[in-house]
Design a protein around this nucleic acid. Structure first.
Lengths: 239, 239
DNA sequence: AATAAAAAACCTGTCATACAGGTTTGAGGA
DNA sequence: TCCTCAAACCTGTATGACAGGTTTTTTATT
């Protein structure tokens, strides 16, 4: 396919951008699915009549968005959707003060309220078990913030998975990066033993409600969870 | 707020990944803000003791996520958050059948229901005017689907902006790419003149409710909008 | 001295070439 | 038919070159 030289669009210009477009089109036209291999860099550079450098930079761009996957020696393959890129984008937004943590919590509350509703309705027994186990793991890791946080993150991601909507999963995943950096702040602001136990209990309540298939209860508990979290962050003076 | 690095590439190996991490760290340590310039490729390649090739590929990766911006002749600059990358990621997910359109609509409904609530409360008079104008523009473009669609997209984005939460704006923007590809399907499935007029009217109702500062009404109208849209897509047989 | 014009210094985009490892393929043998 | 292994192919990285842009410095002018 020939690409036309239209304008000096901020993004549309440059051989690399053209190559990105051509590769994306190639994936769609050939209906490539995750795991399928793309042409080699040399083949593409001949096809598009550009140097290998250009193809490589295009590949890197697509790999950054996790649209394709690169492996040394192997050909590039179509990738599964993954929240890695989104996570970095959000982190960048926060670090450059274009997004603040409260705004993220508002979005998370909105999303996760919906998620527990769906999870309570759709979760498989397997998923219910996983969710309960993660909440329990949190309770058991009360003394180890590091581990506690990871279980917390896994817990929310497991709920998203149980919602059976990969977009919810993607969004929840997108917040993991920045959450890893802010979670400790919220944790430290819970100074009393009681406040910490309450947080754990709330997670257990969510897990139980989802396992019981009770959306109402699940939403209520999740709502409480976010009230607590936002309160803790405000306490810590997080803008 | 102080946050620490969690530069944990899944592709931990490879000089390019390391360079990406180093550049990201550089941005954070120097607290660079959007518009600020980064070191030149040559300077970085000396600093990191890698070839310019590696630095360039790292730059391309960051540019793909819109974390930095590249310009010929000029130095790379820190970028404003932008939904371009997310849009491509979502499109990829749909094209590879990892996400279906209904799932996107469920997420959009969840998000946009919250958005209109916030917009009704927070919108400035300026924003209210813009939103009303876009809804009116839709009504005026009844005969030109192309334009109608663009006004529709702008309408939803304007609402997100009025919510005063850039993360909502980001997410709504992230769906624009795929929406551009599915919107015509929904439109064509509205065969009767009445169905089409109803869609326009619903948008006007949303705009009026937001302008009137009535969250309740706004939510109700938005909910109706999504009922209609999902119905239209099902009618068209979209999985 | 202030300013405008011109030149030098710097930068990015792209190409070509080279080479060190991985990976895939295919020919030939068991 | 199945296995082995070397040839062919591929990616990651480095180096050097050169054509435009851009920024900074210098020089000329008012």
């Amino acid at each position: 396919m020939q690409v036309q030289d239209t304008q000096m669009e901020k993004n549309g210009a440059g051989r690399v951008s053209e190559a990105i477009g051509a590769i994306t089109r190639h994936i769609r036209e050939h209906e490539l699915m995750p795991g399928d291999r793309l042409p080699s860099e040399l083949a593409l550079s001949k096809d598009l009549k550009v140097s290998r450098t250009v193809v490589r930079e295009a590949f890197r761009s697509l790999a950054a968005m996790r649209i394709i996957e690169l492996n040394v020696g192997k050909r590039a393959t179509v990738a599964n959707i993954d929240h890695g890129a989104m996570s970095l984008i959000i982190e960048h937004g926060v670090h450059t003060e274009q997004i603040n943590v409260q705004q993220i919590y508002d979005v998370r509350r909105t999303i996760e309220t919906r998620i527990v509703t769906l999870a309570a309705i759709r979760r498989s027994d397997e998923e219910a078990k996983t969710i309960l186990k993660l909440a329990q793991a949190m309770a058991d890791a009360l003394g180890s913030p590091e581990q506690l946080m990871e279980h917390d993150l896994s817990f929310h991601l497991a709920l998203a998975q149980a919602s059976r909507n990969p977009v919810f999963e993607l969004i929840v995943g997108a917040f993991q990066g920045i959450t890893r950096q802010t979670w400790p702040i919220g944790w430290k602001s819970r100074t009393s033993e009681q406040a910490r136990q309450t947080m754990i209990d709330t997670h257990l309540r969510i897990a139980n409600a989802v396992a019981a298939g009770d959306p109402q209860q699940a939403v209520e508990a999740m709502s409480k969870h976010f009230d607590e979290s936002v309160h803790a962050l405000l306490q810590a003076g997080l803008s």
